[in-house]
Every structure is written in structure tokens, then in C-alpha cells.
Nucleic acid binder design. Structure first.
Lengths: 176, 176
DNA sequence: TGGTTTGTTCATTTTTTTCTGGACAGTTTG
DNA sequence: CAAACTGTCCAGAAAAAAATGAACAAACCA
């Protein structure tokens, strides 16, 4: 085995000086939220930010997040902006410090609501508009073709309606 | 304006010879399914395949899909494999033709079920395992830290349980 | 006012995902 | 059995998404 000459520095040198390495708990939390966030189609960096804030007992300024997560200023700024826009994170006043300090919003229901309204609903809406257009197109077909196509469009519409009906329920379920 | 020398060929030359351009209906359907499929985190090509099959009144061999969608053999093969694995598409026997012929499965509930069981459930499961680990870690903290951390983990667990509880309901909702 | 600090934006670079096309394996056919 | 056909797989190319870092704007300070 090669001798550890650099007195026990790990493989990935942590950002030079003042950034304490992530604790086990922090790593687990970050991992968990990376997975969750990915599921919603958002970038990993956003999961990292939220994960660290989630387990932090104190509000953290952007700089600390950058340092501890080894993340660029750009990513941190953009990620926090996104999280703010979903209400997943908010800033609190820190006495004698000009910087914004961030805390994770513990009640995720606003996050869920905003996500559903902002990402899911629009898709369904545009889908319905498109279905209307398709049904329009089908009327010009020969009776035979129309038969089949109309049937399929009806099925598709059925699914869309199911989706539409589900969202409000989903919201209610999450909010309670 | 530059003269149209190539007698009215459109900007994107359609695959040389025998591939009829997509009809308006087909384009709408493909667009719609690309959106839906993207929402589930799958590549565009998969949406194209399913969209075209969805409005096709007849079963189509892979070759036709490749030609009409201007898609490589590799993408078509992989995409159909994925769709098959989710039960979104199946092959039917075509007399006097050695090639597999594909039709879209109109009942999307199997697709939904497989997606939930294959993609969502595992995430939630691993999340719960991770939560257990985190709670384990927290026990080693000082009482003060433990107080805060334990509280947050409890909230997180609450959300995970909500998610767990929702999936079966979601399934039932979709299947009916 | 000139110098700091804090945070945003965006062109570029890096990383990740998706697509492509050919080698290959399995079948069928003559 | 060789030749033709069908479909899978995978290394490399292309495209898309995300991260970086520096220029910039805004707010504060002395």
C-alpha cells in the first residue's frame, strides 16, 4: 500500500480551507434528496442544496452552501432561485450579516402544489387542446379510417380526463 | 429571397424514397406522446414510436417505423424493447411476413402499473431504508442536536409514508 | 465618491444522455 | 450450406443538460 504522505488528505481535496467535510448524516440527506429531485426532473445540484439545508439546524448563507457542497456560485444561485420559486426554501434575516440566509421549508406541501400546478397541469392542458385538434382532423377522414381513429382518440381523451381528475385529488392528499 | 431551385423540397429532406411523410394527425399524436413520455423521463424517440403506433390503424414492422420517423435501427430496436418491457406495445403475427409487427397497447393501465412498480416504488423503498440509517446516526448526537434532527427526520418520514400510501391508491385509480 | 460585499446572469466548458451505424447472432430460404 | 433477412448490441458521434466562472449590477460602507 502506498504511504500516506500528505497527512491524511482524502482523495478529493475539500475546498482548500474553511469547509468542514460533510457529515454522514448530511451525506445521507443529500443523497436522499438528490434522488427525489431527480424524480421530478431537476438537476442534482438542486437536490444537494435542499438536502444540506434540510438537515442544517441553522440558516446558511449561499457562500457556505457553495463551500460545503463544492459548488460554483452560478449553480448555487440558480438552484436556490429555483427552490425559492417552488417555495421549498426561504430566506431568513440574520442579525449583523448582510447576506441572505436560507432555511429549508419543512412543509413540503407548498412545494408539491407548486410543482403540480407549474409542471403537470400545463402538460395536461396542452394535451387536451391537442386532442381537440386531432378530433377536428379526423372528421375529414373516410368513414372507415374515422371509425378506428375516433375510437382511439376517445380512449386517449379518457386517460387525459383521468389525469385531470386525479390532480386535484393528489393535491388534497398531499396538503392534508 | 433565395430561389427554390430544388423543386419544392422542404427544409428537411424526408428519407429518400419510400417513406410517406407524416400526416398532420400523426404529427399531433407524436407530439402529444413525446410530451407525456418526457414527463416520465424517457427519451423522445420512445414517444415518437408510441405516438405513431397509437394512431396507426394497422400493425407496423420496425422497418416502417424507422423509415417514417427517420430513426436509426438502434434507436428503434431499443425504444421498442423499452415499450415492450412496460407493456405499452406488443407484437402481433403478420401472415406471410417474417418481421414482427407492432401495435400500441390501448389500455395504458398496464403501462402505468409497470412504471409505478418499476420506477417509483424502488425510489420510495430506498428512501425508507435511508431514513432508518439516518435515525440511527442521530442517536449519537448531543441531546440538543438530536432534538432538532429527530424532528426533521420525523417530518421526512411522514412524507415518505404519505408517498407509500399514495401509490396503491394511484394504481387503483388508474386501473379502473 | 471609491471601494467592498453579495448575488445574478450568461457565454463557455464539462458531463450526461441519446442516437447512430455497423458488427454480429439467430432464422429462414433456396 | 451459402445467401438473405431480421433484429440486438454496443462503441463512438452527436445532441442536450448542467455546471462553471467571470462580467456585471445592486446594495452597502467609510
Amino acid at each position: 500500500m502506498p504511504a500516506e504522505t500528505e497527512l491524511d488528505s482524502p482523495v478529493h481535496a475539500p475546498a482548500s480551507a474553511g469547509a468542514p467535510a460533510l457529515s454522514e448524516l448530511e451525506i445521507e440527506a443529500i443523497d436522499l434528496f438528490i434522488g427525489l429531485i431527480r424524480l421530478l426532473g431537476m438537476p442534482k445540484s438542486v437536490g444537494e442544496l435542499y438536502g444540506l439545508l434540510f438537515v442544517s439546524p441553522v440558516a446558511l448563507p449561499m457562500e457556505t452552501l457553495m463551500d460545503r457542497l463544492n459548488m460554483s456560485k452560478g449553480s448555487a444561485s440558480q438552484g436556490l432561485k429555483l427552490l425559492r420559486s417552488f417555495g421549498a426554501v426561504k430566506t431568513v434575516y440574520a442579525p449583523a450579516d448582510r447576506r441572505d440566509h436560507y432555511v429549508a421549508e419543512m412543509d413540503l406541501s407548498r412545494f408539491a402544489t407548486n410543482f403540480i400546478k407549474g409542471e403537470l397541469q400545463p402538460h395536461l392542458d396542452s394535451g387536451v387542446r391537442r386532442l381537440d385538434r386531432m378530433e377536428q382532423l379526423v372528421t375529414k377522414f373516410s368513414p372507415e379510417e374515422r371509425e378506428i381513429a375516433a375510437n382511439r382518440l376517445a380512449r386517449l381523451r379518457h386517460w387525459h380526463e383521468k389525469g385531470q381528475a386525479m390532480l386535484p385529488w393528489l393535491l388534497k392528499f398531499l396538503v392534508v
